[in-house]
Design a protein around this nucleic acid. Structure first.
Length: 258
DNA sequence: ATGCCGAACTTCGTTCGA
């Protein structure tokens, strides 16, 4: 079973790229972020024609998350976090697919630092931590997939330049500590578990030639509960999709479970 | 210190992203 997460940066602008990726890589589940479209304008028919059932939590202009399942309909469990600091933001969707609980997460960016957006990021992460604790305690196979907007370490395999990113909300100690507080509940960072060493960038900025000079970093993560981690077979980043025409600034990131 | 690039609405500039 292949489960992927993909920040598509606008599902309307990216629809041909999305369908192409679904057809070429055939994920069983695809968690999408940054739909940038309202519930009413989600391209359900195109997704269904590609062979996927879908649920989505849209928002006009920005944010927005979805869960797609090949040949079946995800069974929705929750939209939005409990006690979401700003329920107007569509950033969390949770469903069951084939016995696995799967969340599609679009964690706030948090820039500039300091400021209200950074405060919002940390508040949101605290609510995610509380909700994740409940999921963990359920002892189900759970996959928390999405764009966490946190670069876990300063290692060159996680970030092209710690110096260039030092003032950014993605690397601030408070962001990393909040991420660790979740992971240390007992979750497995699937990409790093499968590849303890080696570059695993998932994002390259559109600006300043970041893609051609490979100036990327790792912010898209799949966290696995113990019952999911026990089934982990492989994990990777579909890096070549970042180099295609009209690409998202993120690359699809995936795991396979037995 | 700032903009770079790209998408979408607030629509020929502004806001947001990371």
């Amino acid at each position: 079973m292949k489960i992927a997460t993909f920040n598509i940066n606008g599902i309307k602008a990216r629809l041909p790229r999305l369908i192409e990726w679904l057809e070429e890589t055939q994920p069983d589940v695809a968690c999408l972020q940054e739909l940038k479209t309202s519930d009413e304008t989600f391209p359900e028919a195109d997704i269904r024609a590609a062979g996927y059932g879908a649920i989505w939590h849209g928002q006009k202009g920005f944010n927005g998350v979805a869960i797609l399942a090949r040949g079946t309909d995800p069974v929705e469990r929750r939209r939005g976090l409990p006690d979401d600091p700003d329920p107007a933001h569509s950033r969390y969707l949770e469903a069951d697919v084939n016995g696995i609980t799967i969340a599609s997460i679009y964690l706030p960016n948090g820039n500039p630092v300091p400021g209200p957006k950074f405060d919002y990021k940390l508040a949101w992460m605290e609510q995610l931590r509380l909700h994740a604790a409940g999921l963990f305690a359920s002892e189900r196979p759970v996959v928390l997939a999405g764009d966490y907007n946190v670069i876990p370490t300063d290692h060159k395999d996680d970030v092209f330049s710690p110096t260039a990113m030092a003032a950014d909300a993605l690397t601030k100690p408070e962001s990393r500590a909040a991420f660790r507080r979740i992971v240390h509940q007992g979750w497995t960072d699937a990409l790093r578990a499968r590849h303890p060493a080696g570059q695993l960038y998932t994002f390259w900025d559109y600006q300043a030639g970041a893609w051609p000079r490979d100036a990327g970093f790792r912010i898209d993560h799949l966290l696995l509960s113990p019952l999911a981690a026990d089934r982990l077979v492989d994990a990777g980043v579909d890096k070549d999709y970042r180099g295609r025409e009209k690409a998202s600034d993120h690359a699809p990131t995936w795991i396979t479970l037995k």
